[in-house]
Amino acid sequence: MNTPSPKISTMPSKPVKLRVIWLQGITCNGNTHSFLNDPSLGSLLECIEFIHHPLLPCSKTLKEVVKKLPKSDILIFEGAYRADFERAEIRMESLLMSLALRTKHIISLGSCASFGGIFKESASEHISGILFDKESESGPLHSLRKKVITLSGCPIHPKWISFVIDMIVQGKKISLDEYRRPKELYGYLVHNGCLRNEYFEWKVDSDHFGTKEGCLYYAQGCQGPFTHGSCNKILWNGVSSKTRSGTPCVGCTEPSFPRTELFTTKTYMSIPAEMPLGVPKRSYLALAGAAKSFHIKRLEGKLIDDNS
């Protein structure tokens, strides 16, 4: 018996690409540049297509986007929000809202889009993130909060955005923290996985940038112990991180970013003003005092002694 050969059903169907609009507010392009650094960008572009992107090839110019206000699967917003800031001669308050209403997912990309970031410093009362204004959830997309995924960072790590896009492409659930950041990426502290943890434990500090030895918490303002981010798990350029290479974490993923005096530790009578996240001051001081009482010779010397 001849069975009819199944034709259409077994033909490998061309996967449908998710349609993405990349819109910029007030920005330095840092997240765009970071995105271009992703070595897996090529395979990512097989799953998504840009209706509009400020640098990459795309099907529509911003002017066309403004005219047609197309539907999309993902709206990526980079940069800080200001209601009267214009793109293609349209005020951001109407442009952002129109595109946000016509999309399924919104990615708030970078700390400016997420909390106001660096640009908020210039006109604090007028500039915010799209969902949050610093810690408060009072941005313009408040009514669409459920669509928003926050990817804070200055800039974001390219892997963080490809992770989120990949999860959306696969239709997987992304669990989020209080600022709607993916826990998979922001559940960790920068302190987790830093190569200097042993120095932190025994309170051996480094006074200079770029040393292999010593922790940067006491003398250089490292915010790793209270900053959420996987910088020491998903390494930058696949090789290192700020703290691994000897510069302090400046807390760029938090709503409090940017602080002032980034490279000094604020202290009150020699005691750090900010404790590692969730650690009571009393417990920390008792442990730190005990640790400081010991001298671990191995940790006081150079890891690699050029003279030996």
């Binding site: 009150y268 009578m269 005691i271 001051k281 009393r282 001081l285 008792a286 005092g289 005990a290 400081k292 009482s293 010991f294």
Partner: peptide, 16 residues
């Protein structure tokens, strides 16, 4: 170091 007097010194640290 301060190990045996830590309970006392810690409270003085908190006071200051």
């Amino acid at each position: 170091g301060m190990i045996c007097v830590s309970a006392f010194v810690t409270e003085m640290m908190i006071f200051f």
